[in-house]
Design a protein around this nucleic acid. Structure first.
Length: 433
RNA sequence: UGGGGUGUAGCUCAAUGGCAGAGCGCUCGACUGUUAAUCGAGUGGUUGGAGGUUCGACUCCUCCCGCCCCAGCCA
C-alpha cells in the first residue's frame, strides 16, 4: 500500500492520527529505554520516538540495526511537540527496515572537502543544503516558463546535435553517420532566430555544451540556458525585457522559496536591489570606470572578471554594459549606427561579483554586413547558408539574449561555486557520477 | 594553458629534521526525552608516487600525479 503513506511535510494535517511514513534515517539517538530516529523523505525531516515498553520487540530490535541512510517504514501517532522544528513528532508503534545501509556511508553531518563531496555527489544531494538548492532551481525553471507564457512567447526546442555553427569557443564532437562530425550545441540562438521569424516571440530552454578548458567557479562544460528571441525588438526593447525577467525571477524565489533561502543562510537584503532600475552603462564609460579604480583595461578589449567586479561593486545593483567593440563580440551582433566601431549588445552583470548572467544583442539584419563579418571571422560561410537566408528572405529587426541558469541560481542563492547548483555537474576532469 | 596553494587514519585536520597524533566516524558498554545527545572503553596509517640530501625525512631538494583558488574563454 505504497500510496497510503503520508509525506512528512503533510503531517501537520494528521495531528492525532495513526499514519505510515517512509523515508531514510539521518540520525539515531538512544537513551537506554527511549530511542529516537530522525528520518527524511524529501518533503521534510521527522523525529520518531520509540519507547521500549510500548513497541513490539521486532521494532525495538530493528532500531538497534539502524544506520545512516537505512530506508525505513514507520507507523505511529502524529503528536504536536514544540521541541521539533516542524512542530510534530511521531510516537512509533512499529518500525520496519526496508533497505539496510552499510556503516561506511561516506557523507557524514559535518565538514567535508569539495573533491570528496563531488565524488559522492549522488549522496551529497541528500543533504539539506543541496535539497534547498535543487528546490530553488526547480522554482526558477517554473518561473521562467510562467514569465514567458504570460507574455505569449512560444517555447521552442532547438537541436543538441548540430553542424559547426554558433559561438567561437570549444566544441564537443562526435561521429555522425555519413555526415561527418556533429557538434554538441553551444547555443540555440541561431535556430531561435529562424523560429522568431516564424512565431514572433520565442524562447528556448535547454542544455548547452562548451569544451572550454576553464576552471573557475563560474564555468561548467554542460549548463542550461534560456534564450529568448524576439521579432521586431530593438536592443532597448531587449534590455527592458531582460530587466523585467530577472526582476521576476528574483522576486519569485523570494516569495516562494524563503525557507530554502534560510537553509542556505542567504542574506536576502542583498537581492532588494533588483527592485530599482538596472544601471545601463556604455562600454566606454565602463572601461573608464574600471580604469579609475585601478584596472589597466583598454578600450577595445573585453572586460575581464576583475573589471566586471569593480563596475558592479560601484553601483551595487545589476548593470548592463552596452555597446561593446565589434572585435570583442560575436559576428551576429548588429553594428551600432551611432558608432560603427561598436555593436548593439549588452552583458548583464549580476551583483556581488557574480559576473555575467546574460549576454544579449540586437542581431545584424543586413545581409551584406553579416556576410562580411562571417568572412572576417573566418567562419565556414557555407554552413551558415540557412542562417543567411533569414536576412535574404524578409529580413527583420530582432533581438535576443541568453541567460545562464546556473549562474543565476548561484547568485540568487549566494552559492560560491556553480558546481553546487546543478545535480550532476560536468566540468573539466569530472564526468562521474 | 599560465600564476599561487595543497596532498598525513573512512572524513576534517595537527605534528622545530628526532617515538605519526586529535576530533568525528565505526565497535562494545551505560543511560526513559535526546536534538550533529552524553559518558566509559576499544578500533584505525604504504604520511599521493619515484628518486635524492641526512646518523635520522610527514618535514629539506628534484621530477611526476591529484585536487583547490585566480586568470583567459564565456553564460
Amino acid at each position: 500500500m505504497i500510496d497510503s503513506a503520508v509525506r512528512i511535510a503533510d503531517l501537520k494535517h494528521h495531528a492525532g492520527a495513526i499514519v505510515t511514513v517512509r523515508g531514510w534515517v539521518t540520525h539515531v539517538r538512544s537513551s537506554g529505554k527511549v530511542a529516537f530516529v530522525v528520518a527524511r523523505d524529501g518533503s521534510g525531516t521527522l523525529q520518531a520516538v520509540l519507547v521500549k515498553s510500548q513497541v513490539p520487540v521486532a521494532s525495538w530490535d530493528a532500531f538497534a540495526t539502524l544506520t545512516q541512510e537505512t530506508s525505513i517504514e514507520l507507523v505511529g501517532e502524529v503528536r504536536a511537540d514544540a521541541r521539533q522544528p516542524g512542530g510534530f513528532e511521531l510516537g512509533v508503534q512499529a518500525l520496519t527496515v526496508i533497505g539496510t545501509s552499510p556503516v561506511d556511508y561516506p557523507v557524514q553531518p559535518k565538514e567535508h572537502g569539495v573533491d570528496f563531496l563531488l565524488d559522492n555527489r549522488h549522496f551529497w544531494l541528500r543533504t539539506p543544503r543541496q535539497t534547498a538548492i535543487m528546490r530553488v532551481r526547480s522554482e526558477l525553471e517554473q518561473a521562467v516558463h510562467d514569465f514567458f507564457y504570460a507574455r505569449d512567447f512560444v517555447r521552442c526546442d532547438t537541436p543538441i546535435l548540430t553542424a559547426a555553427i554558433g559561438e567561437r569557443a570549444g566544441l564537443f564532437s562526435t561521429e555522425y553517420f555519413e555526415e561527418g562530425t556533429a557538434y554538441l550545441a553551444q547555443t540555440g540562438q541561431l535556430y531561435g532566430e529562424a523560429l522568431a521569424a516564424s512565431l514572433g516571440n520565442i524562447y528556448t530552454f535547454g542544455p548547452t555544451f562548451r569544451a572550454e578548458k576553464s576552471k573557475t567557479r563560474r564555468h561548467l562544460t554542460e549548463f542550461w540556458m534560456i534564450e529568448p528571441e524576439m521579432a521586431w525588438y530593438d536592443q532597448d526593447d531587449n534590455m527592458n525585457l531582460q530587466e523585467a525577467f530577472v526582476r521576476y525571477l528574483v522576486q519569485r524565489v523570494l516569495e516562494r522559496r524563503g525557507e530554502e533561502l534560510k537553509v542556505l543562510e542567504r542574506d536576502t537584503s542583498k537581492l532588494d536591489c533588483v527592485g530599482e532600475p538596472f544601471v545601463r552603462l556604455d562600454y566606454g564609460d565602463a572601461v573608464a570606470l574600471a580604469q579609475s579604480k585601478g584596472s589597466d583595461v583598454k578600450w577595445g578589449e573585453d572586460l575581464g572578471a576583475p573589471d566586471e567586479a569593480l563596475i558592479v561593486d560601484h553601483h551595487q545593483r545589476p548593470v548592463f554594459v552596452v555597446n561593446y567593440p565589434k572585435e570583442a563580440k560575436a559576428f551576429y551582433m548588429k553594428e551600432n549606427p551611432a558608432d560603427p566601431r561598436t555593436v548593439r549588445c549588452a552583458d548583464l552583470l549580476a551583483p556581488e561579483g557574480r559576473g555575467e548572467i546574460i549576454g544579449g544583442s540586437q542581431r545584424e539584419d543586413d545581409y551584406d554586413k553579416i556576410l562580411r563579418r562571417l568572412t572576417e571571422e573566418r567562419l565556414p560561410v557555407a554552413a551558415y547558408g540557412w542562417y543567411l537566408d533569414l536576412r535574404k528572405y524578409g529580413t527583420f529587426t530582432h533581438s535576443g539574449f541568453g541567460l545562464g541558469l546556473e549562474r543565476t541560481i548561484a547568485w540568487i542563492c549566494g552559492i560560491e561555486h556553480i558546481r553546487e547548483v546543478i545535480p550532476f555537474p560536468r566540468m573539466m576532469g569530472r564526468l562521474h557520477p
